[in-house]
Design a protein around this nucleic acid. Structure first.
Length: 848
RNA sequence: GCCGGUGUGGCGGAAUGGUAGACGCAGCGGAUUCAAAAUCCGCCGGGGCAACCCCCCGUAAGAGUUCGAGUCUCUUCACCGGCACCA
């Protein structure tokens, strides 16, 4: 009799899997494949519980699918480019490559003891020359296909990271990583033409049935499709080459309610006026400044400036509207100009009220008459309203119908055309950083922008760079950027921008199918392994990473790098919840919060001083709050199986799970109990016992439930069933043979979650080979059916008793038994039941 | 503001329209032990009752559909997430 020793068991079985190459994926054309992928990590140097949960979920799927006979691909790599490596170099010297490589080594050393069934032979880092070189090849092909272009653009400039950010990387006006207030600058930048795919990226969402509806909705909102009318308003007096002002509207049905025309301070006409008139320039400067401050955004005050210009109303001959410059109009949405319809748009209403402009209603609620408005009347588009200033369609119609009618009418009259617009903008990928994939082009004074030749790839990052000053080290490198033009051979300058790191993660899933290929993706491998059957990661990537990847897959199809079937690279997506922990806080002499690590706290007091701590409700583990538990410590204390078991139990995978010391303790206690049961069974004989049939029946029930649980991502429910079965096993008076069979099955069912313990038990009780390679147990349908069923008896829908009857007893017989039941007799009190409902095999309800 | 989601014991959470609270944590009682650790067994939503018989209440609140509602419909409230001068 010995004790459960995770440390011994886990090292042993990890070595066994390695030796037998259990998790090495090989292309086997005859076998059905299954590709499981978890979002690869940034090599920060430490794994955290979030990684443990994410990768354990993927591992459960991978191991389960393998047992079900699939040829499983379950790779791992590193999202290795990016700012933190450069920041580290700036702060403490050293080189980003060195820092990154060391982190990868350290993190891998923490990951391997977790026992995840990863094919490490496919490992790569995005900072490998091999990887980014192929990425450059992809880029060149995309450039040739017209999917990449350069333009001058007002960009979001992060003054702390000294780099450009994509719109998506600006959160509340601040850089997503640095948190610094973002500035606007005009720079020539590289862009991916993701907007070419707006319609397709939107409509294809419908086909992603195994994605969370939430994620699909978030992407649809992000793409932001709208249907409207684009039309020109003619200036009464042309100015600086402007004869008309183009306006986009989604509510052309409200055209008769227009009371002014508004343009953005950045609109070309405003800029033209700015040059001539100091008052306009002053206003525009104020409006631009105001729009970026947090205060202006919160108060949302509408500022306007009447230019004195006027435009003709296209539907009202002889009538004109004033042209205002307004701070709330965005230059880069629509045409940067609007017509204001204050009666039916709250912003326009506020604006018109402030500046005394008319507010004529276009429609009123059915059954009401025109009356002065105190706020804009904006009913849902599908609600019918009565048009009092309509010009197309019925007098009473829905907004939707009116918009369609208005577009048709305007097109007929030649005063505009229906257009579809998207909020999604092109993806700016230029970054003025060192630690990223160099953009493989050359600027030649004679030939212009020239693509690097593929045989010259990769364009390597130079090693000898310094980080002692802000800005782009590539740009100030003494020699790197000086090169010859691939076309004319003359002196030229290399592009010093590198790619946004989201590019790296937009195709890594495809590279895993052929990580060492001489081309970005080997077609036969991609054809076999793609698409990812199950992708697992955090909800925080719902928009950016997933949208970019969907675009990249399409771009790779267009450039011949992926088969046409790979447009949606992630067939199923699962977004897992976070790992949270209570926060322990005390206050220092100044009343500032001081946080404490969980291991320094016991029974609500600091171990060191005995001072009582304040317990703040659970939140995402974060270093700054010190509410973190290091997986390395947990593995050292309890073993990987305990950590794996615990992060899967307690909460449904999509929800947050709270890490508690007592929960981890309980998980470990349970695994030790299972081990003990196996150890006892191993020493028992092979005899029979009175509980054999019951135990085997319970075993089949458990196989069924656990299988369904895993299939449906109900890992917590599967684990609950395993707990229950362990309890049954412990109490069972079955003989040795049945106990051993039950425990071998238990080992198999636990193997996806606690693979090391499972191997140990499997081996101990005479299982053949590795449990990791054994086929999944199948529940015997005959064993699931009971000979007798217990039917609850309800009286008026409330449970009052139960009867146990043979499974196939007829309804009339059941009715007779029910009416004879004591509780029913009591409820009836001599009267006859109004109704008797028998749901065979389920329940009986007596209505009195 | 708009869109979406979630509300179940002290806590995390179970429950194809069919016995609400599986399983785990915490708590309580007991066995074992000289004692402890470890382990094992039992109890564990609220109220009534001498009572583990039984009765009443109970899944955020209110209404509805149904023989039967945590589950479906409507209204309200709270919390969480996403988007947000997007014309």
């Amino acid at each position: 009799m010995s004790r459960y020793s995770a440390a011994e068991i886990e090292a042993k079985w990890q070595a066994a899997w390695d030796t037998s190459g259990t998790f090495r994926a090989a292309h086997r054309p005859g076998q059905k494949k299954y590709y499981v992928l978890e979002m690869f990590p940034y090599p920060s140097g430490r794994i955290h519980m979030g990684h443990v949960r994410n990768y354990t979920m993927g591992d459960v799927v991978a191991r389960y699918k393998k047992a079900r006979g699939f040829n499983v691909l379950h790779p791992m790599g590193w999202d290795a480019f990016g700012m933190p490596a450069e920041n580290a170099a700036m702060q403490s010297g050293g080189h980003p490559a060195q820092w990154t490589r060391a982190n990868i080594a350290e993190m891998k050393a923490q990951m391997r003891p977790m026992g995840w069934s990863l094919d490490w032979s496919r490992e790569f880092a995005t900072c490998d020359e091999d990887y980014y070189g192929q990425q450059q090849a992809l880029f060149l092909d995309m450039l040739e296909a017209g999917l990449v272009y350069r333009k001058a653009a007002v960009v979001n400039w992060d003054p702390v990271d000294m780099t450009v950010l994509a719109n998506e990387q600006v959160i509340d006006g601040k850089g997503w990583r640095s948190g610094a207030e973002v500035e606007r600058r005009e720079l020539v930048q590289w862009f991916f033409r993701i907007s070419d795919y707006s319609e397709e990226l939107l409509s294809a969402l419908d086909g992603l049935e195994d994605w969370p509806a939430k994620v699909r909705l978030m992407q649809a909102n992000w793409i932001g499709k709208s249907r409207g009318l684009q039309m020109g308003f003619a200036l009464t007096a042309p100015l600086a080459g402007h004869e008309t002002i183009e306006v986009y509207t989604t509510r052309p049905d409200t055209l008769m309610g227009a009371s002014f025309l508004g343009i953005s301070p950045d609109h070309p006409l405003a800029r033209a006026l700015e040059g001539d008139r100091a008052d306009v320039a002053a206003f525009c400067a104020q409006a631009r400044h105001g729009a970026t401050t947090a205060e202006a955004l919160e108060t949302g005050e509408k500022l306007g400036f009447d230019t004195g210009l006027r435009v003709a109303h296209p539907l009202k001959p002889g009538e004109t509207l004033p042209v205002w410059i307004a701070n709330f109009i965005l230059v880069d949405y629509g045409t940067g100009a609007i017509f204001g319809c204050p009666a039916h748009d709250q912003r326009d209403f506020e604006f018109a009220s402030k500046y005394g402009l008319p507010i004529p209603p276009v429609f009123v609620a059915e059954g009401t008459d025109e009356a002065p408005l105190r706020e804009a009347y904006v009913p849902p588009k599908e609600q019918p309203v009565r048009y009092i200033r309509g010009f197309a369609g019925e007098a009473v119609q829905t907004g939707e119908a009116a918009v369609a009618a208005a577009i048709a009418e305007c097109e007929k009259r030649g005063i505009g055309k229906g257009v579809t617009r998207f909020r999604l903008r092109d993806w700016g990928l230029s970054r003025q950083r060192y630690w990223g994939c160099p953009i493989p082009v050359v600027h030649c004074p004679a030939c212009g922008v020239v693509a690097e030749k593929k045989e010259n790839l990769p364009v390597r990052l130079p090693d000898d760079v310094t980080f002692d000053q802000p800005g782009n080290p590539l740009d100030r490198h003494p020699t790197w950027k000086h090169c010859t033009c691939p076309d004319c051979g003359g002196a030229a300058r290399r592009e010093t921008d590198t790619m946004d790191t989201f590019v790296d993660s937009s195709w890594y899933y495809a590279r895993f199918t052929s990580p060492h290929a001489e081309v970005p993706v080997a077609q036969d491998e991609a054809a076999y392994w793609m698409n990812v059957d199950q992708y697992i990661g955090g909800i925080e990537h719902a928009i950016l990473h997933l949208l970019y990847s969907r675009f990249f897959a399409r771009a790779m199809i267009r450039t011949g790098h992926l088969p046409a079937t790979c447009a949606e690279p992630f067939a199923a997506l699962f977004t897992q919840g976070m790992v949270t922990h209570e926060i322990y806080r005390t206050r220092d002499a100044q009343g500032r919060p001081v946080y404490h690590f969980p291991e320094d706290v016991a029974d609500g007091r600091l171990k060191a001083t005995g001072e009582a701590v304040e317990v703040v409700p659970s939140a995402k583990m974060s270093k700054s709050k010190k509410n973190v538990v290091d997986p390395v410590n947990i593995v050292a204390q309890y073993g990987a199986d305990t950590a794996r078991w615990f992060v899967l139990s307690d909460s449904p995978p999509e929800r947050d799970v709270e890490w508690t010391a007592s929960g981890a303790e309980a998980a470990h206690r349970h695994l030790a109990r299972v081990w003990r049961l196996a150890d006892e069974a191993a020493q028992a004989g092979d005899g029979t016992g009175p509980g054999d049939a019951d135990l085997i029946r319970a075993m089949h029930r458990t196989i069924e439930d656990v299988t369904l649980g895993i299939e449906s991502f109900g890992f917590n429910a599967a684990i609950a069933r395993l707990y229950a079965f362990t309890g049954t096993l412990a109490k069972s008076d079955a003989g040795g043979a049945a106990r051993k069979a039950a425990l071998r099955t238990l080992a198999q069912l636990m193997a996806p979650m606690t693979p090391h313990l499972a191997e140990e038990i499997w081996h101990l009780l005479g299982g053949l080979g590795l449990v990791a390679e054994a086929p999944w147990p199948v529940a015997d349908a005959a064993m699931l059916a009971r000979d007798e069923v217990t039917l609850p008896i309800q009286v008026n829908g409330k449970r009052r008793g139960e009867i146990t009857v043979p499974r196939d007893l007829g309804t009339t017989d059941i009715e007779a038994l029910v009416l004879a039941d004591d509780a029913v007799q009591r409820a009836l009190a001599g009267a006859a039941p109004k109704k008797l409902i028998v749901v065979p095999g389920r329940i009986v309800n007596v209505v009195v």
